[in-house]
Every structure is written in C-alpha cells, then in structure tokens.
Amino acid sequence: MQLSYNGYTHPENEANCGIIRQGLIAEDGFVWGYTERWSITGILHGDTSAELNAAMADLEAAYAVQGGNLTWVKGGTTMHALISLSTLSGTRVVTPPQFTANGDGELTTFRSYTIVVEADVALSGMTYTAADGAFPVSNVDIILLKYEESFDYKGTGGPRFGLLPTLKGTFQRQQLTETSPVEVTQTGMAIGLGKRPLPATPVYPDDEHLERRIIRKPQARKRGGYQIEYPIHWSYTFERNSPFTS
C-alpha cells in the first residue's frame, strides 16, 4: 500500500490510514453529504540524523499545502481517493504532521507521525468549481439546505372605527366604514447548495401589491473560502376586501 498527497509519495507500506465519514445534515434532518476524514499514521526512516531530518522536512512541506489530492494505491489499483476538485471546498489538512511520540528509540533512525486530512462531499455531486449561484430551472433540481416561510394576516374585513378628538373630555368612538381591507404578508427564505433557490410563488397573485414586492439576495456563505451556500429572501403583500383563506 502506498499513500500520496499533492505529488508527495510516502514510501511503500510506510503510512496507514483510518477513513471515516460523518454525515452533513440540513436543519430538517436531511442528510445531503458527508465529511470524509483520513487519519494518517506512519514512521519515517533515515540511516543518519541528517537523512531523518530531511525526511521530516519533506513531509511537513508536502502537507503544508491545502487542496491536494489523496490517493491510497495497492498494486497499481487505487483503493481509496479523496480528490480535491470533487469536494465542496477542497481538501483540508486539519492536523499537519505531528511528532508526539517519544522514547522507544524515537529520533534514532525513525520518527513516528500523525496527520489528519478531511473534505466535505455533497451526495448531489455539487463541487466548489460548479457552485455559481445561478437560478435553477426548478428548486427540485437543487439541494435546499434550509427553507422557511410564514404568513401574517392583518385584519378581518369587519367595520373600521376611529377615536375622534373632542374639545373636552375623552375621544369619541365613531364607526368610519362598514368594512375594511384585509392584508396578508408572505415572507420566507431558502438556502441552496451551489445554486440560489427560486423565491416562492405568491399564493394570492391577483391581490398582490406588486410595487411592494421585495426579493433579497444576500452574499453567499463560504465554506473553506469558497462561496457554496446561496440564500434568497422574499416578501409579498396582498390586500383585498374579504378575508383570505389560509
């Protein structure tokens, strides 16, 4: 078995890897991807202190670079791979080479090390190179990380009254109209993975105040330095003379 990272190849059978995957879960409990973590352990060798020191420096230099490809090959066959371009924000060296072992001959002709590399992977196949924030044909075609919407109903359509000022004493209550308009506000937001979701469709299109419609497109939320999560907000106002059916 031979491990490689970003052009650096570990000597054959020098390194071992433990690979785990932890699900990425949206607020509604939907699992839309996973974080894959490679825990790498190995032992560097050198016949002299100078050779061992050079081997340590080469290892540290290789894993000082973020976004490299990880492959684990057996007899010419790739058994495991974590390819940076296939992830949401590139591979991350979250634990650079650590040399924490001591005693038992460490730093004579060998040096033990540990490294951790991880990346986020979307089940939909979305990657940081494909994320552009463009609107999809339909929200069914994208992963929604979050979606929420609410309706505020104002008024019942009943009589309207007013309190009229008087020269002395309390204000006088007086009915102004037999009926009154009813208003509804539809507001919501959604976050799309790599694409900006379409805003929801107005539920009462014939009664909408088009001049009061608000569509807001905040800046994308970044993951690993790349714009990945695209939010959108909407607000529609409707008004009519009779109550709305909810």
Rank of each mutant, 00 (worst) to 15 (best):
Q22M: 06
R196L: 03
I142Y: 04
A62L: 02
A62R: 09
L59I: 12
E208C: 05
N16T: 14
T129N: 06
W234G: 00
G169W: 04
L3M: 06
G68L: 04
T108H: 05
L198I: 13
M126G: 07
F161K: 08
A54Y: 09
Y34G: 11
V94Y: 11
R212H: 07
A190I: 02
S138D: 12
F161I: 03
R221Q: 04
T35G: 05
R196C: 05
G192D: 09
A119V: 11
G162D: 10
T170P: 05
Q66W: 01
Q2M: 00
G7T: 13
A101E: 04
E14I: 04
Y63A: 06
E51Y: 14
S112E: 01
S235G: 02
F99Q: 03
A50P: 04
L82V: 15
Q2V: 04
E51M: 15
Q172N: 09
K146T: 09
R37N: 12
F99V: 03
P136D: 09
A81G: 05
N53G: 15
S84Y: 11
A220L: 14
F151S: 12
S242R: 15
Q2W: 00
Y147P: 02
H233W: 02
L3I: 12
A122P: 10
A101K: 07
S235H: 10
A26D: 01
P96N: 03
V116T: 12
V31I: 15
A15P: 08
N53Q: 15
G7K: 10
I215C: 10
S124L: 06
R221P: 00
I214Q: 05
L3Q: 04
F171G: 14
Y226T: 06
K154T: 07
G67C: 12
F244E: 03
F135T: 08
D120R: 12
A50H: 13
A220T: 01
G33Y: 00
R213L: 02
L176K: 09
I214V: 12
P159Q: 13
R223P: 08
L88Q: 05
P205V: 05
M1T: 12
Q22Y: 01
I43N: 10
I43Q: 10
V31H: 09
E229K: 00
G42C: 12
G7V: 06
G76H: 05
E27Q: 11
I228N: 02
D28L: 11
E183D: 10
T237D: 03
I142P: 13
E60Q: 13
Y153L: 15
T35Q: 15
H209M: 01
I232S: 01
L52Q: 08
